[in-house]
């Protein structure tokens, strides 16, 4: 119940400042630029949204930490965390309430890209099941970025530091599936280790979802990643109380 109250307050707070409109406009413009210019949407001559979704990890890498950096740093800076943490709510209520508000906000930005889906249906005959799975996968991936960002934001009063830390850690999670990283390990490490590193990658899981394979393993991967980072957030906040 308290979690819902926190959620409502947080979600409304995005719209009480220009943050919401600035974020949504930039998100939509960048998504469009990536799809049509870098993704060669028309030139490919295929009716699907691959060029659109392929760039999402890179889009999120900078835009999601911009949302998550304020989750806790701002509260610590303004001192309102003292108010929040002395209200009769658990840390879980606060952590999950704040996270879900931010997650739904990003979900809203994602929903506003629906004209992209409409145009591809107008131009051809895409597999809408695949597109739906891709949207879901993209939103889950955004949630994972956000959970990492939430933890980084709890670590520091400074939003700038929270932003940089989040970008770096998210970048590592993206890269861990790239040959660039995997080749370093391939020569000497046992294949179990290489597989384990590859399996941590956002890209591996996201690309399998966006091919339309909504596997249990990929769902579990993103959800447990979110769970772990939110748990870490709660621990960081708990430790600050004793520090």
């Amino acid at each position: 119940m308290e979690m819902v109250v926190i959620f409502k307050r947080e979600f409304a707070s995005y719209f009480s400042t220009p943050l919401a409109s600035v974020f949504i406009v930039i998100f939509l413009v960048l998504a469009g630029v990536f799809t049509f210019y870098l993704g060669n949407f028309y030139e490919r001559g295929q009716a699907d949204l691959m060029p659109f979704f392929n760039f999402h990890p890179w889009l999120y890498l900078f835009l999601v930490p911009a949302i998550s950096m304020r989750l806790w740093s701002e509260e610590r800076k303004s001192g309102s965390i003292e108010l929040l943490m002395t209200l009769p709510i658990t840390k879980l209520d606060a952590v999950v309430g704040k996270f879900t508000a931010a997650w739904c906000f990003i979900g809203l930005a994602l929903l506003l890209t629906i004209p992209m889906w409409i145009s591809v249906n107008y131009l051809g005959d895409p597999d809408n099941g695949v597109i739906f799975a891709s949207y879901l996968g993209s939103w889950l991936m955004a949630g994972s970025f956000l959970a990492i960002g939430s933890c980084m934001s709890a670590l520091t009063k400074s939003q700038v530091i929270a932003f940089i830390l989040s970008v770096v850690i998210c970048f590592l999670f993206i890269l861990s599936g790239f040959p660039l990283v995997l080749n370093v390990f391939k020569d000497w490490a046992p294949s179990v280790v290489v597989d384990a590193i590859a399996s941590l990658s956002f890209l591996t899981h996201f690309s399998s979802i966006s091919k339309g394979v909504l596997g249990f393993r990929d769902l579990l991967y993103f959800l447990s990643l979110i769970g772990c980072w939110l748990f870490a957030t709660a621990i960081v906040i708990e430790l600050q109380q004793a520090d």
Partner: peptide, 15 residues
């Protein structure tokens, strides 16, 4: 059971 006014009366200023 507690009502608390922290030092400097912080609150959510965007509300």
């Amino acid at each position: 059971r507690i009502g608390y006014l922290p030092e400097g009366a912080p609150c959510y200023e965007d509300m």
